[in-house]
Amino acid sequence: MRVLACIKRVPITGGRIVLTDDSLAIDTRHLGFTMSPHEECGVEEAVRIIEAGGGDSVVLTLGPPEAVEQLRDAMALGIDRAIHLQTDGREWDGEATAAALTEAIKADEAASGRFDLVFFGNESADSGGFQVGARVAYALARPCVTGLKRVTIEGASVRCEQEVEGGRDVYVVPLPAVLTVKEGLNLPRYPSVPGRMRAGRKPVTATNPVRPEPRLELVRLVVPAGQGRRAESLGTGAAAAPAVVEMLRKAGVL
């Protein structure tokens, strides 16, 4: 098996989003970064598949030079090597991102063989475009199943389960396939200290693709107005219990 996990570096926004002065980006000066949550599950699934059946695993991202931190995080979980499509930090739209990733996948496959599975997150935590996985799948002429909460390899096919109203929808598609996953697919492990040390020595291949003009072009970001909740204090400690019960009664739930 050869498995690829595609990830995106995103800021950890905390309690309140603050924008840069030009309103074109989140002010990340005081923020940490992580990989987008759905994709963390894609990485974990890739590692489990290789652990169970053997083979090799690769992680791919398009992002600024600092995104190498997230590639190292993925390798600390067990991914073998990384491909980094370096940007200058400006945002790429979903269409441009998918085109660059497709090219990188084709190049890697030409050198090292076909990926049986390519994992994406269902949507990125930040821009939420809901499209990169489907675009890459179409460009590679491979079946794509989205929003998965369970993935089971069955010989030359993969059984895919999606959470829907009232239960789960099941799809079975032949390999090679492109799968987009959601958090809850698995519980990603914490990287071990030896895992982190090994990750530092694993290979990262970097290239610098040219950014096309975006056709979905960001004009500005706006932090939405709050919902006007008034934060009325019902008291402090256990003594507040009667006031809470009174509130519940007024709300009609008791």
Binding site: G226, Q227, R229, R230, A231, E232, S233, L234, G235, T236, G237, A238, A239, A240, A241, P242, A243, V244, V245, M247, L248, L254
Partner: peptide
């Protein structure tokens, strides 16, 4: 800050107190 109602303090005391009151 983003709630309608707040109770400040240790939830390990407050939550059982609300249950007892109910």
């Amino acid at each position: 800050q983003n709630a309608d109602y707040t109770v400040a303090g240790d939830l390990k005391e407050i939550v059982p107190a609300i249950s007892a009151e109910i």
